[in-house]
Amino acid sequence: MNMRRFALIAVPYFWLLALFLVPFLIVFKISLSDTALAIPPYTPTIKDGISALIAQLDFENFTFLASDDLYWKAYLSSLRIAVISTAFTLLVGYPIAYGMARAPEEWRATLMMLVILPFWTSFLIRVYAWMGILSNEGLLNQLLMWVGVTAEPLQILNTNTAVYIGIVYTYLPFMILPIYAALDRLDESLNEAAEDLGCSRLQAFWLVTIPLSRNGIVAGSFLVFIPALGEFVIPSLLGGSGTLMIGKVLWEEFFNNRDWPVASAVAVILLLILIIPIILFQRNQQKQAEAEQ
C-alpha cells in the first residue's frame, strides 16, 4: 500500500521535475554562460562538475541586456502594451459581464456558452481573422471610407492599435468570466437600498456594484495582463516592425540570431518581471477563497 502511495506521488512529481524544473534551471544556467560556449552545438553543462559550473558563470549576458537599448525598450513597451490593452479589455468586458448578470435566468446558460465558445476556437485563427479586417483594403477601411470618415485607407494593420485590438479580442472571455461570477453573486437589494437612501442609479453603481465586484475585476485584469505581457502571436501577426514586445524579441533572438544565452537571459528577466503580478494574483484568489468560506 505504501508502495502504491509512493508511486502515485512519484510519477507526476518526477515528470514535472524532469520536464518543468530541470529545463528551467538549464535556461537559468545558459543565461549565465558565455556566448561562444553556448552556440550550438553547446556542450551540455549538466555533466560538468559543480566547480566548473561556478567558474563558468558570468553576468555578461545580463550586462549586455542592460547596455543595449533594444531590450529596455522592449520590456517597457511590453509593459505599456499589456497595461493599455488590459484597461481596454476591462472597459469592453465589464458592460458585457454586467449585461449577462442582469439577463433573465433562462438566457444565462446560453450567454455563458457564447462567451466560452471563442475560447475553444483556435487562438491563431482568432488573431488571423483580424488580419483581413484591419488591412488597408480590409472591411474596416472599406466601411470607414464608405461612411466618409476618411478618404484614404488608414494604416491599422501592423501598428500598435492592431495589437491592442487583437489582445482585447482574444482575451475578452478571461475578463468577462470572473467579473460575471462576482456580479452574479451580488445581491441586487443592496442597489435598491442605495437608491432608496437617495443615490442615483449611477451613484449606486459606483458606490455599491463596482466595489463589490472588485475581486472579479482584479482577477480578470491579471488573467489578461499576465499572458499579454509575454505574448508572441499577436504582435508578430498584427503588429508592425515598430511593435516591440519581449516575447517577439526572445523568439527572434533564438530563431533568427541563434543567440541562446541572450535569449535565455531575456527569458529570465521576463520571468522576474512576471513574479510580482503572479504573486498579487495568487493573493487575490486566496482572499476571495477565504471570503467565501
Binding site: F20, P41, G247, L250, F254
Partner: peptide, 24 residues
C-alpha cells in the same frame, strides 16, 4: 510546479524544453 506552468509565458516553456531536449 502544478500551478507555475499555467502562468508561464509560452515562449519560456518552449525555450526551456528545447534546451533540455538538445542537452540530453
Amino acid at each position: 510546479m502544478i500551478y507555475a506552468p499555467l502562468v508561464m509565458p509560452e515562449v519560456i516553456t518552449g525555450l526551456s524544453l528545447l534546451l533540455l531536449f538538445i542537452g540530453i
